[in-house]
């Protein structure tokens, strides 16, 4: 605490920024937490229907997406080490790989969703109205939870893209990279949620 003379506008506190980011991550976790509660209750009430409905989902696609997210999580974590080693080029490459992998995830998701929709499985469709109520709930939750997760992927991509821009402009450097760390934390959160979504939706056969 030696910067009391500094004007408030110039106040900089990297540790505080990180604390704030973590607390924000908690709110995100609980946002999904609400959906996980709904999921667990409905799965408990409709075990068989969830079982049957889950067979509609493509485990291979799900696994590929899991691998993509795990690798992208590693690359963004590595980029923080890279900036600490003052290796700007490697930082940018690693962040770029993260963005590309995120894009691949979204493309995959697009094919998965459009596949479902072409089979008539979407909220309010005729097929689903004839299905059992458990299946209806399963697909409702499936679209809501993976959809909300995909939204977070997009936000994370924008965040990482913005930080990349800062790295290019040398505003993020080896002694000033709190925002890169925070974008990394956000990206790991997205990964963390997927780690639970994957077995809960794709692996209950």
């Amino acid at each position: 605490m030696n910067d009391h003379q500094v004007h408030i506008d110039e106040h900089r506190d990297d540790e505080g920024a990180k604390t704030g980011m973590w607390i924000f991550i908690f709110t995100e976790l609980l946002l999904f937490g609400g959906l996980f509660i709904a999921y667990s209750v409905y799965r408990y009430l409709n075990p068989l229907a969830f079982h049957l409905a889950a067979e509609e989902l493509d485990t291979t696609l799900g696994t590929i997406n899991t691998v993509i997210l795990l690798v992208s999580s590693m690359t963004i974590a590595m980029s923080i080490s890279a900036i600490q080693y003052k290796n700007k080029k490697l930082t940018l490459i690693l962040m770029g790989i993260t963005l590309l992998l995120a894009l691949a995830f979204m493309v995959n998701k697009y094919f998965e969703w459009s596949g479902k929709i072409s089979h008539g499985i979407y909220p309010g469709s005729m097929t689903l109205q004839e299905a059992s109520r458990g299946e209806l709930l399963f697909f409702g939750l499936y679209y809501a939870m993976t959809g909300l997760h995909a939204l977070h992927i997009v936000i994370g991509m924008a965040f990482i893209g913005y930080v990349m821009h800062l790295v290019v402009k040398n505003e993020v450097q080896h002694d000033n990279f709190a925002i890169l760390e925070n974008s990394g934390l956000y990206w790991h959160l997205v990964d963390l949620i997927w780690i639970f979504l994957f077995p809960l939706f794709y692996l209950i056969t």
Binding site: A77, M78, Q84, Y85
Partner: peptide, 12 residues
């Protein structure tokens, strides 16, 4: 301020 938090660099 406390910058010591960032001294630890995780190896690739």
């Amino acid at each position: 301020m406390e910058k010591d938090q960032h001294t630890h660099i995780v190896k690739y």
